[in-house]
Write a protein that binds this DNA or RNA. Structure first.
Length: 602
DNA sequence: TTAGGGTTAG
């Protein structure tokens, strides 16, 4: 296959030319007394080879470079000096070893510099050389570099011969260009082993095409007779977690056991995450305690699982437990903990965690941490404190951070602050749908219909839309998706009849449609119709029709559940004697006997 | 004597 996008390739040559060896604080050669044991040994070997003259033997010298370059990245300048010595017997293996060392180190662009020196010295790169360089280009998030390397691979006739290069290219295209191009390369490749499949599947996972991940996993085994391995299962488990498909998730857990795949630390962690994200917290807990080995990620995943399910106390207990067994939290652990505070309104605890971050845990707060705190303070009604925190923090606030505060302003009906926040958002992102809708509703509330029209026109002109609400529900391993007001499902008539029935039962219990956040210039009746056909209601109606009485109905929603749907779900759980679990973009809501696990705080 | 695919929060 030819490298796509020739225009990019034409000017990408500058990437290979305008480079020099970059330094890094970690590259500073350690003083003699602080030499790592292995470094000391390497220097002794070097000295010995110099003394006995074996350094002039190309194979021996190459081995020394390889050992030095792959020992620790602080030794990379040492390896580079060795290789630059005028009498050093250079060979491709030595060059590759140095490229490999730099590609895995803190400054991957140095590997490209070494590659350029290798070419200038008249050495021909081989198939090994490009696997290291393509990895470096992925680390550097530099598509032009990868495309340029692909061009070199083709011109040297190395494409299509080596499965390692093929997979490296698939992986590079999936990560930095497009998964479609990766798929094209994969289709044209004659060597589709499990690693190539894994690279492709990972590409679909990274691009958010989760159903495709599961489909590919099936095709790979059923039609192509390739056995999945632990790495495949990691991607499939992650796709299940995103989709919330518990049945498929359970099936892959069984598949791992049946096919005797190794339950690695990473795979166990991915499965815990899958169970938690699919709403089965009990299985997540059971697997967590069953795992003999747990690393910081395993603990963090479990803490965030508790957080997602509104179990803040359990999240804090586990956090303490984690430290007791000597595992330090990282930035993700703290995010999970702060998010647990947010879901339960634990303002005091959240403030303490923020204070301790840099002093006790040695973690500098990032914009995400501030996001959690702003969310926590905002939801709890401490709007002034949240705004003050944003103004005082050393980081530049982003749209997401302001967005959290805007949601809080809407919930607590602080119109004045909401206006200020919406302006801040539009300053950063003039097309931000959330801020524009807020302003439109604000003008409508004051009857400024001209201004409303102005905002609406702008949204129309720029084709700005809020993402449509979508809900997923799994039935017998098949995922059914519903959009708001969806009439495309084959069971449309019975779904809408069930929806009417739910509405009747709810009204009998005194339910009145809650239409918060809706444009004020739509007729009340229209608003009611819109709300009554929200995607999660359609999914639950479908679930009620198609599942046996008493079974749990699980729905995954892409947006935050609205107040009306939240109330309706409570009625459904009571009237139909069903547990309804809804995962919205923030957390889980478990409705049972007329109430929700979030105790109406979300 | 070197190589490809890896889960987590927001």
């Amino acid at each position: 296959m030819k490298a796509p996008n020739m225009t990019v390739r034409a000017h990408s040559s500058s990437i290979l030319k305008d480079l020099s060896l970059k330094t890094h604080p970690l590259f500073t050669a350690p003083s003699h007394s602080s030499l790592l044991p292995s470094t000391k040994l390497l220097k002794q070997t070097h000295a010995k080879l110099l003394r006995n003259g074996e350094i002039h033997d190309s194979l021996t010298a190459g081995k020394l470079i390889a050992d030095v370059a792959t020992s620790h990245y602080s030794n990379l300048p040492y390896a580079f000096r060795l290789l630059s010595h005028p009498h050093f017997p250079l060979n491709t293996f030595a060059w590759n070893s140095l490229i490999r060392g730099f590609a895995d180190g803190p400054i991957p662009e140095n590997s490209v510099y070494v590659y350029r020196r290798m070419l200038a010295g008249g050495f021909a790169p081989n198939n090994y050389t490009y696997t290291f360089l393509l990895k470096a280009s992925a680390f550097l998030a530099e598509p032009r570099l990868g495309l340029s390397l692909h061009a070199n691979i083709i011109s040297r006739g190395l494409d299509g011969l080596d499965p390692y290069i093929q997979t490296s290219l698939i992986s590079f295209y999936a990560a930095l260009v497009s998964v479609d191009t990766a798929q094209q390369l994969f289709d044209e490749s004659s060597m589709r082993d499990v690693t190539a499949w894994n690279a492709l599947i990972k590409g679909y996972l990274a691009s958010g095409q989760y159903m495709k991940v599961i489909r590919l996993f099936q095709v790979m085994q059923d039609r192509c007779n390739v056995c999945a391995d632990e790495v495949t299962m990691l991607s499939v488990a992650s796709a299940c977690a995103h989709l919330g498909t518990l049945d498929v998730g359970k099936w892959i857990h069984t598949y791992i056991g049946k096919n005797k795949l190794r339950m690695t630390l990473n795979l166990g962690t991915a499965l815990i995450n899958m169970y938690a994200k699919c709403g089965d917290i009990e299985s997540a807990i059971a697997l967590f305690w069953k795992m003999e080995e747990k690393d910081m990620r395993t603990w963090s995943v479990m803490i965030s699982a508790f957080s997602l399910h509104g179990l803040a106390k359990e999240a804090f207990d586990l956090f303490m437990n984690m430290q007791r067994v000597g595992i330090d939290p990282d930035s993700v652990t703290i995010t999970a903990l702060l998010s647990a505070c947010s879901h339960r309104g634990l303002v005091k605890e959240g403030r303490i965690i923020l204070c301790r971050m840099s002093t006790v845990y040695n973690i500098e707060p990032t914009i995400e941490h501030y996001g959690c705190i702003v969310d926590l303070l905002g939801r709890a009604g401490h709007l002034d404190e949240a705004l003050d925190l944003i103004r005082k923090m050393s980081l530049k606030p982003d749209v997401v951070l302001w967005g959290s505060l805007l949601v809080a302003c809407r919930v607590h009906r602080n119109i004045e602050m909401g206006k200020v926040v919406a302006d801040e958002i539009l300053e950063l992102d003039p097309c931000n749908a959330g801020a524009l809708v807020f302003l439109s509703n604000l003008h409508a509330a004051y009857g400024n219909w001209d201004r409303v029209q102005e905002v609406r026109d702008k949204m129309k002109e720029q084709r700005i839309n809020k993402p449509p609400g979508s809900s997923l529900i799994e039935l017998n391993g098949v995922i059914h998706e519903f959009l708001s007001g969806d009439k495309s499902h084959s069971q449309v008539d019975s779904i809408y009849m069930m929806l009417d029935e739910i509405g009747r039962l709810a009204r009998r219990k005194g339910h009145k449609t809650a239409m918060d956040g809706f444009p004020f210039d739509i007729d009340d009746e229209d608003k009611e119709v819109c709300v009554s056909q929200h995607s999660e209601k359609l999914a639950v109606a479908f679930g009620l029709i198609n599942t046996r009485p008493g079974s749990v109905i699980r729905v995954i929603k892409n947006l935050r559940i609205c107040s009306d749907c939240h109330e309706i779900m409570k009625h459904v759980s009571e009237a139909f004697e069903r547990t309804v679990v809804v995962r919205d973009c923030n957390r889980f809501h478990q409705f049972s006997k007329g109430s929700c696990s979030c105790v109406d705080y979300w």
